[in-house]
Design a protein around this nucleic acid. Structure first.
Length: 208
DNA sequence: AAGTATCG
DNA sequence: TCCG
């Protein structure tokens, strides 16, 4: 049985219920190990240093970080200096299943949204390889996800992303603006606290 | 630059 | 209240 893949735009797919309940529990438990090895940190805006409301960590060879020095991928945790922990097998399997791209992901950004956290409209454009899609997995409370076009001025729409949902952002939609308007606290009991975990899997460098 | 606040 |  495969979950329906809903095309929101060319190259932009929503897969409601991609992970069943057992897989969500398995991923949640794997991420507890990830966060133990690579504690959540608070990213900051380039230049201004203003903190994000979302906290983050990463797994895989490279991790996305942001601070006064800018947005970048790097192989080590910005606070502990340790290499990022490995990607859980389930994460890698989701990439193989959803990305339609013949090379492995290098980065898995783990975003923790507490109930009041938001993410402004932005593009994912720090990857040297824009041929590969970005694959997103949601766990915990439902989020209001907003997306538009590849220009900031394009009109936007919003959809709800529930625990277990996947989104694939690729093809002509690879550089669409997107963000999280709000979290519907209490909509899931998967996590111990109100909030949401989002994983974004990415290929960063062009394949050798 | 993936920030927040505020206004129409 | 939502959107720009």
């Amino acid at each position: 049985m495969s979950a329906p893949r809903l095309a929101l735009a060319p190259g932009l797919l929503h897969v409601p219920g991609y992970l069943d309940g057992a897989a969500q529990v398995r991923l949640r438990d794997a991420l507890r190990e990830t966060v133990r090895a690579a504690p959540l940190f608070t990213p900051r805006m380039p230049r201004t240093g203003k903190p994000f409301s979302v906290r983050m960590t990463n797994c895989g060879a490279l991790g996305w970080v942001s601070d006064e020095g800018g947005y970048r991928y790097q192989p080590t945790h910005p606070v502990t200096g340790a290499p990022w922990p490995p990607m859980p097998d389930l994460v890698r399997a989701a990439w193989d299943d959803l990305a339609a791209y013949p090379h492995p992901p290098e980065a898995c950004l783990v975003n923790w949204y507490e109930a009041s956290a938001k993410m402004g409209l932005h593009q994912d454009r720090d990857e040297a390889d824009l041929e590969a899609p970005v694959v997103s997995l949601s766990l915990g409370d439902t989020a209001i996800f907003r997306f538009g076009g590849t220009e900031r001025k394009a009109p936007t729409r919003s959809i709800r992303l529930a625990s277990g949902d996947a989104v694939v952002i690729g093809g002509p939609s690879r550089l669409v603006f997107h963000g999280i308007d709000r979290i519907l606290a209490g909509s899931s009991t998967l996590l111990d606290a109100p909030g949401r975990i989002n994983l974004t899997l990415r290929r960063v460098t062009p394949p050798a």
